Amino acid sequence: MKLPVMMAAAIALTAATPALADHHSSATIVEAAVESPQHETLVAAVKAAGLAETLSGDGPFTVFAPTDAAFNELPEGTVPTLLKPENEGTLRSVLTYHVVPGKVTAAELIGMIEDNDGSAALKTVQGSTLVASLSGGNVILTDAKGGTATVVATDIKASNGVIHATDAVSMPG
């Protein structure tokens, strides 16, 4: 394992979002997201999908949380359409695709990638797989449709898991 590279990547990613890195670990994943000024769209989506109670539960969960900027990159009208009550099932599928059972820290994820010849398959709560890999010291998630998201902040601790912020919304197949 390339520990110096791994540590440098984790430190750099956490430093990129100091408001999240300073979060207190006594809050749940949902409370941590509510406190983040970069995850307002995610919080609204979690509430619209009826997932707030689940993600406030015991867990543990690892959440790859798209930032507001990530949601803004979706085609125009996508977010308002997903937030409509009649699309709750689709929204729930998209959101649970960003959740992995268990607590996976950045160091553990990088170790999994390195131990598996450069990529790690992550089974999501939604049921599909996200593939994590490294590129230029960054963790990259490749979704079922071939889209990629870069992890931009890591190891945001919560009482019921950990959050890693991403710069794109991953889409299930």
Rank of each mutant, 00 (worst) to 15 (best):
K2V: 05
L3N: 13
L3T: 15
L3G: 05
L3M: 14
M7C: 04
A9I: 03
A10H: 11
A12G: 15
L13I: 03
L13F: 05
L13Y: 02
A16K: 15
A16L: 12
A16V: 08
P18N: 13
A19W: 02
L20M: 14
H23T: 13
H23A: 13
H24W: 02
S26K: 07
I29A: 10
V30C: 06
E31R: 03
E31N: 07
E31F: 01
A32N: 12
A32G: 12
A33Q: 04
E35N: 13
S36Y: 08
P37W: 01
Q38W: 02
L42F: 05
V43A: 06
V46T: 03
K47Y: 05
A48K: 01
A49Y: 03
L51D: 11
E53L: 12
E53M: 13
T54Y: 09
T54S: 13
L55S: 04
L55Q: 05
L55D: 04
S56M: 10
D58K: 15
D58Y: 08
G59Q: 12
F61L: 06
V63M: 09
F64I: 02
A65G: 06
P66A: 03
T67P: 09
D68F: 10
D68V: 05
A69W: 05
A69F: 04
A70F: 14
L74R: 08
G77H: 09
V79Y: 03
P80R: 05
T81K: 13
L83V: 11
P85F: 06
E86W: 07
E86M: 11
N87H: 15
G89H: 02
G89V: 02
G89N: 10
T90E: 08
T90H: 00
T90S: 01
T90A: 07
L91Q: 03
L91I: 02
L91G: 00
L95D: 06
H98E: 00
V99L: 06
V99S: 04
G102D: 13
K103N: 12
V104I: 15
T105D: 04
A106G: 10
A107V: 14
E108P: 00
E108T: 07
L109F: 04
G111Q: 14
M112S: 11
I113M: 11
I113V: 15
D117H: 05
S119M: 08
A120F: 05
A121R: 09
A121I: 03
K123Q: 13
T124Y: 04
L130G: 04
L130Q: 05
A132I: 06
S135F: 03
S135V: 03
G136I: 10
G137N: 14
G137W: 14
L141T: 08
T142R: 12
T142L: 11
T142F: 11
D143P: 10
A144F: 04
G146V: 10
G147R: 12
G147Q: 13
T148P: 08
A149E: 07
A153R: 09
T154N: 14
K157C: 02
A158S: 12
G161C: 11
I163Q: 00
H164R: 04
A165G: 00
A165K: 00
T166D: 02
T166P: 02
A168N: 07
A168Q: 12
V169Q: 08
S170W: 00
